[in-house]
Amino acid sequence: MAEAWDFLRTDKMPHIWCPGCGHGVMMNALLRTMAKLDVNKDDICVVSGIGCASRLPGYLDFNTLHTTHGRALAFATGIKLANPRLKVIVVSGDGDATAIGGNHLIHAARRNMDITLICMNNNIYGMTNGQYSPMTPTSMLATTAPYGNLERNFDLCKLVEGCGANYVARATAAHPRNISQYIEYALTHKGFQFVEVMTQCPTYYGRRNKLGGPVEMINSLKQNTILNTAAAKLPPEKLEGKIQIGEFVKKEELTYLDRFDAMVDRITGGVKP
């Protein structure tokens, strides 16, 4: 039985992340899932853009690609279409996926492209030292929002659901088992599979907003979230300020590749080119 460790490029350690960064929790959960699924490393391709989160593929012993800021899903689309046998996973930060890469996100989801996207949402641009992102909640501080963020943030899961993804789920770095469970589902199903993982950036988001260190931030991720199935039983006033985690969409609609294959059959009369 494989272990998480087996999927690491240990010679590439130490990693670049700050002590207490939440991205590592996601990586750990991802690798445990890989071990559980006993995947063949050669069949996995992990693609990222730019940012702290996007440095993750370099540490994984798979086919790995570290692209340009925001564009990972577009590169991944090319990879998946050229070699559908590959299981293509995109890992990104919140800025990478929702700001500069927002257009690619909505279209990859709309196409129901056969890709798994894991977005590590730390509510900030970590790599560039703490500017606000489309995921920074209103009023929170950032280096470019010294008087508080004026903008509203996305509900990312609702966005991706609206775009038509087959699977949408959210977990946090305080819920590693949920991360693993959702990634396992994503990796074993077709179409656009989306998992948002809320992570802590103690270095910039935490410090600037006086949220304490990694421990305090993990605790607040625990306290401020509620499982969607539990939330469904509560009155709205009890849900104020709470972020829902859980699985929001589980569909098995036709994927881009399903439709492509059907089209090829139709135009070639089933004779494989």
């Binding site: 391709c45 692209t67 577009a74 090319g78 279409l81 050229a82 279209h107 492509f260």
Partner: peptide
């Protein structure tokens, strides 16, 4: 599609360029 290849109209030219690089890394002339 008749030649065993793939065509996709991407959401913009940035994505188109990215996609052909991805496909080339997966072994296809792009």
């Amino acid at each position: 599609p008749k030649l065993g290849g793939k065509f996709i109209q991407m959401e913009d030219e940035i994505a188109s360029m990215a996609a052909i690089v991805g496909a080339s890394l997966a072994g296809m002339k792009s």
